[in-house]
């Protein structure tokens, strides 16, 4: 069962929006317990790739497997693909947690309510059990004292930590992050990154789209660099960031240096 050793595999995955081809020939293996960082210029297809993993977008070519099971489409006997029923997609999706750039908390529920909601509706826990679990999860991201607040009463960093707690409450095997700090002020970015760093240390499998090059260099183990919908290079963080760098990556990293980002690469 060698393929089950991988958390996620992609074979020849492509995605077009109508005539607009966004991803081409993506082959990728994401191993359990690793932090994979997806880097690349704006419009290179990072979000689309991540959203395909959760089947929020349907990939138009290839096969994606999550924990060994095909996501959305399975190989068919005739060599093509067949669409899986929604129930099967939902089942595979339970392996995943997703954290969005815009947090996407439900504004009419408290922090506690946001985290407890799926525990009650999906896990069928009674209210007390769900809320106890949710509170423990909020504690884990350092927000137990904010449990009764509504999203509009929380800072951006706090909202994103609640969103992380909401994803973790469902005990996913893999957590996907799409630019989790991009809509935060610099002061608030740190508190979210430190929660993510802690999660990485606990051995969580994480796929992180990020423009935080420092985070990628320090926490990322597997680096994937996308350019124009293709994987331009991938490898261990130490190799990828090592000079001499791939010229396209060097150019990409330079834009961060130009904006004053400090590249603390090998530590």
């Amino acid at each position: 069962m060698s393929e089950h050793a991988a958390a996620i595999t992609l074979e020849g995955v492509g995605k077009s929006f109508g005539d607009n081809r966004v991803l081409t020939g993506i082959d990728l293996t994401i191993r359990h317990g690793e932090v994979t960082c997806l880097l690349g210029p704006s419009g290179s297809g990072k979000s689309t790739l991540l959203r395909c993993l959760a089947f929020l977008e349907e990939h138009t070519e290839g096969i994606i497997r999550i924990a060994g099971e095909p996501m959305g489409f399975a190989p068919a006997a005739d060599g093509g693909r067949k669409r899986l029923p929604d129930a099967a997609i939902g089942r595979v999706r339970r392996n995943l947690g997703m954290v969005f750039q815009q947090f996407n908390l439900w504004p009419h529920m408290t922090a506690l309510g946001n985290v407890a909601e799926a525990l009650r509706l999906v896990r069928r826990m009674d209210r007390a059990t769900a809320e106890a679990r949710a509170l423990a999860q909020l504690e884990h991201v350092g927000l137990a004292h904010r449990a009764g607040h509504y999203p509009s009463e929380l800072s951006g960093g706090q909202q994103q930590r609640v969103a992380i707690a909401r994803a973790l409450a469902m005990e996913p095997k893999i957590v996907l992050f799409d630019e989790p700090t991009s809509s935060l002020d610099p002061e608030l970015t740190g508190e979210v990154l430190s929660v993510m760093r802690g999660l990485a240390q606990e051995g969580m499998t994480m796929v992180v789209v990020t423009h935080e090059i420092g985070f990628a260099a320090q926490v990322g183990e597997h680096i994937v660099f996308l350019d124009q919908g293709r994987i331009l290079l991938e490898g261990r963080a130490a190799e990828v960031f090592q000079a001499p760098r791939h010229p396209r990556l060097a150019q990409f990293l330079q834009t961060y240096v130009d904006r004053g980002a400090s590249l603390v690469l090998q530590e």
Partner: peptide, 11 residues
Amino acid sequence: GHVEAAVCVGL
């Protein structure tokens, strides 16, 4: 995104 977040936790 509010709906996608709900889909992702299994609602």
